[in-house]
Design a protein around this nucleic acid. Structure first.
Lengths: 111, 111
DNA sequence: GCATCGATGTAGACATTGCCGACAACGGGG
DNA sequence: CCCCGTTGTCGGCAATGTCTACATCGATGC
């Protein structure tokens, strides 16, 4: 069992894709990361990460079917695989365990 | 302002130190990581990480004062700096934002 | 038609993090 | 003295994070 833990940024990318639902296009992910987490990275950085996530089987994608008006390369719609979900749950649970009881030190999450 | 985000493992190490309070010795951190997050790494891996966290000013340490009976090198007691706390809060908040509304997909944390 | 713009994606590079095994140092007990 | 348990240090390599530069292709405006 290969337990390669997703990195910090990889997790964020996975979560962004989930948030976007059927709008999981690369540039949407970029905007979502900025909106939610205030994280701004270049497109190249994101594509590289998506490529690695795919190699690990945590995301998959399909080419958007028939969009006759838009120019540029055909865009890809990313989605998180079942394995990706599992990995996210594991990471989250680990963090929760480590956060337990530290509210006094860290304060409440600023929602 | 250099915004170098702590990596996934670095966060866990910081949290473990906080959990341990005045028992923040390297090998205790190792045990805590295993107990809470099920994460087992070699001592070398941990020391390297602690060293980097110190360079970034996220942890500091003091040599344990006067323990006349124990063998080996004098051990160091690690603690998280104010900057470390701030970094942890930022990471946590970012993740919370990304988790918002995904309970349906990810399920409740298994506490 | 041609220069450009906007939305995508790819390639190549390099810095930072994650992780390990091997070795050193020291006190205690055979 | 040799070995054991506890720490810590080193050097190296793999994985992740991130950027810049470049390539594609429709639409738009000369």
């Amino acid at each position: 069992m290969k337990t390669a833990f997703p990195g910090e940024f990889e997790q964020m990318v996975l979560l962004s894709i989930l948030q976007l639902g059927d709008d999981g296009f690369a540039l949407s992910v970029l905007r979502e990361l900025d909106r939610r987490a205030g994280r701004r990275v270049s497109r190249g950085a994101l594509y590289k990460t998506l490529e690695r996530l795919e190699e690990k089987g945590l995301v998959e994608w399909e080419v958007e079917q028939a969009t006759p008006d838009r120019g540029g390369h055909p865009r890809r719609r990313f989605s998180v695989t079942h394995e990706g979900i599992t990995a996210l749950q594991a990471s989250r649970d680990a963090l929760f365990q480590l956060w337990q009881g530290l509210e006094g030190v860290l304060g409440k999450p600023s929602s």
